[in-house]
Structure formats: structure tokens, C-alpha cells
């Protein structure tokens, strides 16, 4: 910081001392203590800033609406130590209860099906379901693809022939 050519504190020094909230140290501080002009100028800026704050408050309305707080949250939601684990436990228990006690109510036997259980959602018998599963396990491709797949024409190639075709045996591969 440097003083201006008149020997007084520069405006920057005055602002800086004002922002810091204390007199500057060193020669600038000594000057400020001794110079009524600089103190007056500093006070002028300070008064303008205070006037700004006062004017803003005067020009703002007062709140007219009463703050309405929400009611306290239920006690269970305040069980912080358990938190999510407790909630998850309750959810799992509720789900288990639904599965164990409500699901049988929706089960029914197929007429003439000798007690085969049909799920309420699917409506498909166990046997039909298992047949589908078995078919898909053996070949997941639709019938249209099955017709053109090599497996449909295994009479043309056995496994060794296909392998030999794909990976021909070389006599000079160094292994024989």
C-alpha cells in the first residue's frame, strides 16, 4: 500500500482498512490516527455503506405471513440408529408375509387336472411349463432357425467331419 501524492492515504488503503475492520499497521496506520482528513474520508465511505443498509431495510416490507411448520414426523421415522436396515427388514418381512399367506388363496386346481397347481398370474400348468423349459434347454432357437441350423441335418456331417472342415489337420504342424 502506498500513500497518494498529497501524503494522505490512498482510497484503496482506506477501503482496505474499512474492510479489515481495523486500522492499517505501519506508517499508514500512524497517518490515519493523526490525519483528520483521512479519518473523515474513511468515515464518509462507512456512513454511505451504513445508509445503504438502512435504506434497504426501510424499503423492504415486513413479512406478513406466519411460518407454518409441518407436524413432527412419526416416531418410527426417527429411529436413526437402525435407519435403512430397519426399513428393509420391515419390507422383507411384509413381502414374505404376502407370499406365504396370500399366494395360496389365489391358487386353484385345474378341472380334471388332478390337483395340478396353477399360478394366478400365469395360468399355465406345471407340466406345460416344464415342457417348454425342456424344449428351450435343448434348443432355444425358434423352429424357423432350427430348420437351417446344422443340428437339424446331423445326418450330413457328424461332429468330427464338421471339426475337420473348420480346423483342417495339418501334417506339418510340428506336433506329430
Amino acid at each position: 500500500m502506498k500513500q497518494d501524492t498529497t501524503g494522505h492515504l490512498s482510497p484503496e488503503e482506506l477501503v482496505s482498512s474499512l474492510v479489515d475492520g481495523k486500522d492499517p499497521g505501519g506508517p499508514a496506520g500512524l497517518h490515519l490516527q493523526a490525519c483528520p482528513e483521512c479519518r473523515l474520508e474513511r468515515q464518509r465511505i462507512l456512513e454511505d455503506l451504513r445508509a445503504l443498509g438502512r435504506k434497504a431495510r426501510d424499503c423492504a416490507p415486513e413479512p406478513a405471513r406466519k411460518i407454518v411448520l409441518p407436524s413432527r414426523e412419526p416416531a418410527w421415522s426417527r429411529l436413526q440408529p437402525f435407519g435403512w436396515a430397519l426399513g428393509a427388514g420391515f419390507a422383507a418381512a411384509a413381502a414374505a408375509a404376502v407370499i406365504l399367506f396370500l399366494a395360496p388363496v389365489h391358487q386353484d386346481t385345474v378341472p380334471g387336472g388332478q390337483g395340478r397347481v396353477v399360478t394366478a398370474a400365469g395360468g399355465m400348468s406345471d407340466a406345460a411349463l416344464m415342457a417348454d423349459v425342456s424344449r428351450l434347454t435343448e434348443n432355444a432357437l425358434p423352429d424357423a432357425y432350427a430348420e437351417i441350423s446344422p443340428e437339424a441335418s446331423t445326418d450330413a456331417f457328424d461332429d468330427d467331419e464338421v471339426l475337420d472342415f473348420v480346423v483342417p489337420i495339418s501334417d506339418d504342424d510340428g506336433l506329430t
Partner: peptide, 19 residues
């Protein structure tokens, strides 16, 4: 902007040392 003027100046402002 508003209809009434409340110049309550209990507030704060000037009592506090700047900075």
C-alpha cells in the same frame, strides 16, 4: 413493490464494526 413502510431498525446493521 409493497404497500407499507416498516422502518424497524432494531436490526443490526450499524452496531457492528465494519469488517
Amino acid at each position: 413493490m409493497q404497500d407499507t413502510l416498516h422502518g424497524d431498525s432494531q436490526a443490526t446493521g450499524s452496531g457492528q464494526e465494519e469488517g
